[in-house]
Nucleic acid binder design. Structure first.
Lengths: 135, 135
DNA sequence: GTCCGTGCAAAAGCTTTGCAGCCTT
DNA sequence: AAGGCTGCAAAGCTTTTGCACGGAC
């Protein structure tokens, strides 16, 4: 057993299965509360605590990522392929942006500074097309 | 008067002056609470609300930026020159990283997608040298 | 004299956690 | 049968806000 990276064993649960499925079915980068509301129709007694606990397990398993979009609340995504985000400062919408710059950037910088880099995030802030047309 | 970007007038206050000076004197990317504790020696009756209110004014004035480092609390910096961040996942330390990739990246992408980009952030996550030696 | 900034305290908002019972293994 | 997972509720933490007073202009 590797003490540092011992992988915790989890039992399966319908709530967590459906939570992951729900996250995978959308590209809207939901909040915990949105996920809760949606799942509530399927699990009438669902609690928000369960949503948070399962999100945290899925994150630990690497199946879900937390997105810091500068709001007071977190957003989540189940997309595993590397991509960047366009974040609208007016409506908060997050759009995935496939074109990824510098896929090799992590190693490159790790070599140049005394810091071991595992990952990076690139977020662009501005105004989405919807918010520009409304103006 | 430009309605969209009308600049609000603020009176000066010693608390805000000293807050900005404190932020400018450090490269540690402090939390609101750290700033509060430090300023408290100078203003014994200082309140945390005042710190938050002034931080928000300084941010509006473009003198301070909020940093989302993936914690439950925000960090702040008064550095105005463009730079990226190295964020240690173990101790939470944030290190400024001068080498900036793609200074022209905003315009470049704005032209390729239907999204007007004003700014971007690039954050690298990993382990700092201190945390690696301790291991 | 105005009215913005402050201190104080309470509230707000998102997230975490303790506990008893249920479900997976 | 053991122990993780759930629902419920309470607590936790950071940040925001209402109010009356004091200070900037």
């Amino acid at each position: 057993m590797n003490q540092e990276h011992s992988v915790k064993q989890y039992r399966s649960s319908r709530q967590r299965e459906r939570l992951l499925a729900l996250l995978r079915s959308t590209n809207t980068h939901p909040t915990a509360s949105w996920l809760y509301d949606r799942l509530k129709t399927e699990f009438p007694n669902l609690s928000l605590g369960t949503v948070y606990r399962n999100l945290s397990i899925l994150i630990e398993q690497g199946l879900v990522k937390k997105i810091d979009a500068g709001s007071t609340f977190d957003r989540f995504e189940a997309k595993t392929t590397p991509h960047d985000h366009l974040i609208c400062k007016k409506c908060g919408k997050i759009i995935d942006f496939e074109q990824r710059f510098f896929p090799e950037i992590n190693d490159e910088i790790s070599r140049s500074v005394d810091f071991y880099i595992e990952s990076h995030r690139i977020d662009f802030f501005g105004t989405c097309s919807d918010c520009r047309t409304i103006q």
